[in-house]
């Protein structure tokens, strides 16, 4: 290993201390220990320690290129599908190591759903989009499938808008509706965790508001990790916030992780304070 610059190594001890938010009310769904990620030779993320708590919304904020998407894609092991990606460290989902040899990737990904920055409905009908994930694992009778599709669309607050056009192409919907369709599609397979990578960045403010309301409602059923560029959004929807940034070697790091309220009012790290105050340069 390269001799690491002074600042990053010296702070790792005290960082560990700040990694533990006060009074974790529930068990961690994800336990992340010393996770690093490389794209070829380039180290994109280094030494992340974090716990993600059940039934909570955890926001991930930070400047672009600091490894937020990279981090998210480690949690459902989708990042490694690109060539030349290597992940080091330990990630446990409900106590089980997700890098274990006997892990079934398809099952892992059913438990950890994902919503992307740009809505990505499949080139098929609204109904088939939602039914897709169910069909890959279960043979349901038509009425049972209808019911599952309806329930997923209701959970995504889209049912009323599309119930009369279920067999039209999902691509014909507006951007905000497409994103909720993708959420419905993800919810249909009943994941435990939903990862959202800047789900609103391509949407207008009203569509954004709808997704935020949706997130509030979904907290009852599952755990959400949301990457966002929008500081107000992080403050509005999340209980915990993680601030990522790049160090002087351009390697992404977790700078601070705490209760959202604490991050936004009395963050420990000066760089976090600068970032949430919009003084990032």
């Amino acid at each position: 290993m390269l001799p690491s610059p002074h600042s990053s190594s010296s702070s790792s001890e005290e960082k560990l201390a700040t990694m533990e938010p006060q009074s974790p009310s529930t068990l961690p769904v994800f336990h992340i220990e010393n996770v690093s990620c490389f794209y070829g030779r380039h180290k994109a993320l280094e030494g992340v320690y974090m716990d993600i708590y059940e039934g909570k919304v955890t926001a991930i904020i930070g400047p672009s290129g600091c490894g937020k998407s990279t981090f998210l894609k480690i949690l459902n092991r989708i990042g490694e599908m690109e060539s030349n990606v290597r992940v080091d460290g330990k990630v446990q989902l409900l106590g089980k190591n997700i890098f274990a040899r006997d892990i079934n990737l398809n099952l892992l990904r059913r438990q950890v759903g994902m919503i992307f920055q740009h809505p990505n409905p499949f080139a098929m009908s609204i109904y088939d989009n939602v039914a897709y994930g169910i069909r890959t694992f279960h043979r349901l009778s038509r009425p049972a499938l209808d019911e599952a599709v309806e329930s997923a669309l209701r959970s995504a607050a889209l049912w009323d808008e599309v119930k009369d056009s279920l067999h039209q192409s999902g691509l014909a919907l507006s951007g905000g509706q497409q994103q909720r369709l993708c959420i419905a599609r993800a919810l249909a397979v009943k994941p435990k965790v939903l990862l959202m990578d800047e789900p609103c960045s391509a949407l207008d403010p009203i569509a954004t508001l709808k997704i935020e309301e949706l997130i509030q409602g979904l907290k009852q059923q599952l755990t959400i990790v949301i990457v966002t560029h929008n500081m107000q959004q992080a403050a509005r929807v999340s209980e915990y916030t993680a601030f990522f940034s790049t160090d002087e070697r351009r390697i992404g790091q977790l700078v601070e992780f705490d209760l959202t309220q604490k991050i936004f009012t009395e963050a420990e790290q000066p760089s976090t304070r600068d970032y949430v105050a919009g003084r990032f340069g």
Partner: peptide, 29 residues
């Protein structure tokens, strides 16, 4: 086809062949 369309299918637990046949091929049709 954007990587995220494929990832959308993988994220639902689809296998590579399911993804190619039901998701990427229709998008490339």
């Amino acid at each position: 086809i954007s990587a995220d369309l494929r990832n959308g299918a993988f994220a639902l637990g689809a296998t590579q062949w399911e993804t190619i046949i039901f998701v990427t091929m229709p998008a490339a049709i």
